[in-house]
C-alpha cells in the first residue's frame, strides 16, 4: 500500500489549468523526485495537493484515506510536511519561534521540547542562531530552518519544493545530506528539484513534468541514463 497517492491531478490558479492529469505515488521510506523545466507546473502540483492552488479534479490519498481538498492547515495533522520554494520561513519570527510554529498543532509539551533539542543537534547552524530573526539568516540557513520547521510537526511525508535552488555547491551538499539522513530515519520525501542529476541519482522513483503533463516516469537512475530524455526535457548533455 502506498503511503501517499495523487491520482489524475488537474490544477491551476483561477480558471487557468496548469497541471494536467498528473498521477504519482510515494511508498513508505521512498525518496520520489519530480523534475522538469522552469514553469512546467512542479510547484503548482505540490500546492494543489495541500490546498494552496486550485484543484480542478483528481484525488489525493494518504494511506488510502481520501484527503482531497482538505484545508491547508489540516495537512499537517494528517502527516504531510511542506517546504515551499520561496518564502519558506517566518522572517519576522526568531529561529526558535519558527521551530515552535512547526509544532503548532501538537500539544505534547515534553515531546516538543525534546524535538526542539533534537533539531538543534541535527542542525547546529540553527542552534547558534536561536534568538536571531529568520530574516537575518543566509540562504542555506533559511533552507535548513524551513526543513527543520517542517520536521517539528513529525511528518510521515515531506514535500520539498526545490530545497537546493540558489544555494552554493557547499550549502547544497549540506542540505541534501540532511535530507538523505531524514529519509534514512524513516520520513518519506517528495522532492521537486531543478538540480536534476542530484535529485534523480538519489531518488527511488522519478517523474518528469513538461508543460503541466507527466511525460515520463521511472526509477531515478534509469531516467537519468535515458539519452533522449536527457536532451529533450532535462537540459543535460547526452553523456552521463
Amino acid at each position: 500500500m502506498p503511503l501517499f497517492e495523487a491520482k489524475n491531478i488537474c490544477a491551476g490558479y483561477g480558471d487557468v489549468m496548469i497541471v494536467n492529469d498528473v498521477s504519482l505515488s510515494v511508498s513508505n521510506g521512498d525518496l520520489v523526485a519530480i523534475v522538469g523545466p522552469n514553469g512546467s507546473g512542479k510547484s503548482t502540483l505540490l500546492k494543489s495537493l495541500l490546498g494552496l492552488a486550485h484543484l480542478f479534479s483528481g484525488q489525493v490519498l494518504y494511506r488510502e484515506r481520501d484527503i482531497t481538498r482538505i484545508a491547508p492547515w489540516q495537512a499537517v495533522e494528517v502527516g504531510l510536511g511542506y517546504v515551499p520554494q520561496v518564502n519558506n520561513v517566518f522572517t519576522n519570527l526568531t529561529v526558535n519561534e519558527n521551530l515552535e510554529m512547526g509544532a503548532y498543532h501538537r500539544h505534547d509539551k515534553a515531546g516538543i521540547r525534546s524535538d526542539l533539542e533534537e533539531m538543534y543537534q541535527r542542525f547546529p547552524e540553527l542552534a547558534a542562531r536561536k534568538k536571531a530573526r529568520a530574516e537575518t539568516l543566509s540562504g542555506g540557513e533559511r533552507q535548513l530552518l524551513a526543513i527543520a520547521r517542517a520536521m517539528m510537526a513529525r511528518p510521515r511525508l515531506l514535500l520539498l519544493d526545490e530545497p537546493l535552488a540558489f544555494l552554493s555547491p557547499k550549502a547544497s551538499e549540506v542540505v541534501l545530506n540532511r535530507l538523505l539522513q531524514i529519509q534514512a530515519e524513516g520520513t518519506s520525501l517528495l522532492l521537486v528539484e531543478q538540480n536534476t542529476i542530484k535529485a534523480l541519482q538519489n531518488a527511488s522513483y522519478g517523474y518528469i513534468l513538461n508543460e503541466g503533463r507527466c511525460v515520463m516516469e521511472g526509477k531515478g537512475p534509469q531516467l537519468l541514463a535515458d539519452g533522449s530524455l536527457r536532451e529533450r526535457f532535462l537540459g543535460l548533455g547526452k553523456e552521463v
Binding site: 494552496l52 491547508p72 492547515w73 495537512a75 517566518f90 522572517t91 519570527l93 519561534e97 510554529m101
Partner: peptide, 15 residues
C-alpha cells in the same frame, strides 16, 4: 505574528 509575516506558510504549518 506568523500569519502577519507569511499567511500561506502559516496555513501549511497547521495554523
Amino acid at each position: 505574528r506568523a500569519i502577519a509575516s507569511n499567511p500561506d506558510l502559516a496555513s501549511v504549518t497547521g495554523i
